[in-house]
């Protein structure tokens, strides 16, 4: 039997296109989380998706991240329509293409810091030790998550996401559980991750202050894009107050 493989088209690498995506919930699809939303994201962009609670921003993130499937529409990454992937291919997509950062970190409590990052290591890719060094946790390899502060845990989460060198880095309220100072450090890290401009970094938040430093701000309401602004002169991190 031929092994299924995820093959990207080199010509479209760096482009994520969502076309008319909808997500319905409920027995009769009475709840519309996303309603025919379309957008296109490019590598190098630091995108902030803003929206109130229940606007559909997390649903969009979940669909892009391959954690959920669309009810209608398509999501195309590097020439591959991920909405048509099998479950196995979805897992491969999440493993190789997407990096996730959650509000509550979602670290494995029974694995050490290093082991948590090793979970996402890909053969021939970045080493877990290097990822931890990049987030400044080279001295915490053998600590368990419960021995770390919230900020440190989120940094482990970032290391875990970047160790696979993902094409898309999806961050769901990454500073939501952190104080302002630590939150800034985390945003700094996320911005540094993309200094080579080789990733699409998407941050979902309801915190408008973060939007001020983004390259692009997409506002969502009732499952639709209500504004999509490219900021030619985003503020510097030091200028904002989270």
């Amino acid at each position: 039997m031929k092994k299924e493989q995820l093959i990207f088209d080199e010509r479209y690498v760096g482009t994520l296109t969502a076309t008319g995506i909808s997500k319905f919930y409920g027995e009769n699809n009475e709840v519309k989380a996303l309603d025919g939303l379309s957008l296109q994201l490019f590598t190098g962009q630091f995108v902030v998706i803003l929206g109130a609670s229940g606007s559909g921003k997390s649903t969009l993130l979940n669909l892009i991240g391959g954690m959920d499937t669309v009810s209608e529409g398509s999501i195309n990454i590097a020439g591959v329509d991920i909405t048509k992937l099998s479950e196995k291919m979805y897992a491969q997509y999440r493993r190789e293409v997407v990096g996730f950062i959650f509000q509550f970190y979602n670290l494995m409590p029974n694995l050490t810091v290093l082991e948590n990052v090793e979970l996402s290591e890909l053969p021939g890719g970045m080493k877990a030790e290097d990822a931890l060094k990049a987030v400044g946790l080279e001295n915490k390899h053998n600590s368990f998550p419960s021995e770390l502060s919230g900020g440190e845990q989120q940094r482990v989460s970032i290391a875990r996401a970047i160790v696979k060198n993902p094409t898309v880095l999806l961050c769901d309220e990454p500073t939501g559980a952190l104080d302002s100072k630590t939150g800034k450090k985390i945003i700094k890290l996320l911005m540094d991750v993309n200094k080579n401009k080789d990733k699409i970094v998407v941050v979902v938040t309801h915190n408008a202050a973060i939007a001020e430093i983004a390259d692009r701000v997409i506002k969502i309401s009732d499952g639709k894009v209500i504004s999509d602004v490219l900021q030619t002169r985003p503020k510097k991190l030091e200028e904002i107050d989270l």
Binding site: G65, M67, K88, A91, Q92, Y93, R94, R95, E96, V98, F100, N106, L107, M108, P109, N110, L119, S120, R160
Partner: peptide, 14 residues
Amino acid sequence: VKEIATLKVLGQGI
């Protein structure tokens, strides 16, 4: 359940 869900998100196979 949360650990398993996280592993799934990280792309670990069943």
